[in-house]
Design a protein around this nucleic acid. Structure first.
Lengths: 230, 230
DNA sequence: CAGTGTTGTCTGTTATAACAAACACCATTG
DNA sequence: CAATGGTGTTTGTTATAACAGACAACACTG
């Protein structure tokens, strides 16, 4: 037996299209209201309609995309109510994930968190917004991932997927990002101190500040909202 | 214009198969470890492979089914760790949903809850286990649904979907169901009193008692577990 | 009798074609 | 010039066929 590599797990075309699409949504690559077509996606990814359709439907089932009028698929529009609801779920779950994760992060894990904070700061310094989002995301997911609770993680990721398209709202607000950075530093301190309750409070604060920033941006610059509110 | 009926919302075959399958999983109609094939489902529902495959994949994306070795689809197996994780999510979210729902239930809503409790009791009295599960589910979903938070509801439903296949574990334990009934009565009292905090505590108690019952049943009668733990 | 190779069936995957509905555009008509 | 009709294109939906891999059974061979 020359190779021990995974005997299962064949990456199907559907999986690849889905993964690509998901990554794009998570990174905020699409603007809310944007319509996506099966054949359009298929052509772009050089596959037939079947895998494209499947990837689209899978993402809709997960909540990253939604059905518009008829059966067109589009990037969900933003409303304050939806944003509130997302945080209604995020706050308790990510608080829990952080607490559980902190207990399992070794010094190795803490070092990874510090590296994320460092790159996050650097990205902000050079004004690279996309990179700062990526590092922010990496920090959170590393912390939560240490909890090794796949279901919890899956639900949290589903929430981030919905937040993705809202990210473009934050482009102008670098101060909020700076504040997030400070929260991350405080979180690392709490992890070091082994103070789970404090960590939860800090994570909640971090999330709620982000929520406030988004709500402000939403109220400010989106009187004519993109996409339908349905 | 002779008819004002919904001009959108065409129920596709995929939707129908999906809805049917989802209902079955939620009702605990499948035993964990059971394998399902695309063509088998297609034949049973008298459709071609395409809608069957789509329904299956949609349910997998939602977490109600899972991929086994290769790419076979099966009903997820039960482990204590998974059960714990489900409740890690359920407890805070359903507590929140209950609190929000209670504030919006009118006397009309309270009457509906009472009706569920009454039918629940009747089902237990005549030993109709399936009906008792249905009434229990109806009680919870009515309470949560009043909150009118579709996203919160969606996440909660996804959790119930995973619990569905475990329901058969509870067949013998009618006492636990009786206890659940008492919790529901207490919940109605808390709703009447407008005491959200108390309601949350009662809901949490209800859930954790159910969790304990399931863990006990799992430890007792499943040394040789069905399906793979993967 | 044990082992091995072959074959047939069943699996999911993917591309494709036929279909109906929705939509937009454009020409024709009032 | 405005309204209306038709037409062609694009949409998602579904069935189907071709395909490759997995698996089991069975027969053949040692």
């Amino acid at each position: 037996m020359p190779e021990l590599a995974s005997p299962e797990r064949v990456e199907t075309l559907s999986d690849q299209v889905y993964a690509e699409l998901r990554k794009a949504v998570l990174a905020g690559a699409f603007v809310p209201g944007q319509r996506m077509t099966i054949r359009g996606l298929a052509a772009e990814m050089k596959v037939s309609a079947t895998p494209a359709r499947e990837a689209l439907n899978r993402l809709v089932a997960e909540g990253g995309l939604e059905y518009g009028p008829g059966k067109t698929v589009r990037v969900p529009a933003i409303t304050a109510a939806k944003l509130d609801e997302i945080y209604l779920v995020r706050v308790p779950l990510e608080g829990t994930a952080a607490e559980l994760g902190a207990a399992r992060l070794g010094s190795r894990g803490i070092a990874k968190l510090e590296a994320f904070v460092e790159r996050h700061a650097a990205a902000l310094d050079r004004g690279d917004f996309r990179a700062s989002l990526r590092e922010n995301q990496g920090f959170h997911f590393t912390l939560y991932g240490a909890a090794e609770r796949p279901l919890l993680m899956q639900v949290v990721e589903a929430m981030w997927l919905r937040i993705g398209p809202m990210m473009h709202l934050l482009y102008p607000t670098f101060e909020a990002n700076r504040s997030g950075l400070r929260n991350h530093l405080a979180a690392i301190e709490a992890v070091r101190a082994g103070d789970g309750a404090a960590l939860r409070r800090i994570v909640e604060k971090d999330l709620l500040e982000g929520r406030a920033t988004m709500l402000r941006a939403l109220a400010g610059q989106a009187p004519g909202n993109l996409g339908d509110a349905a």
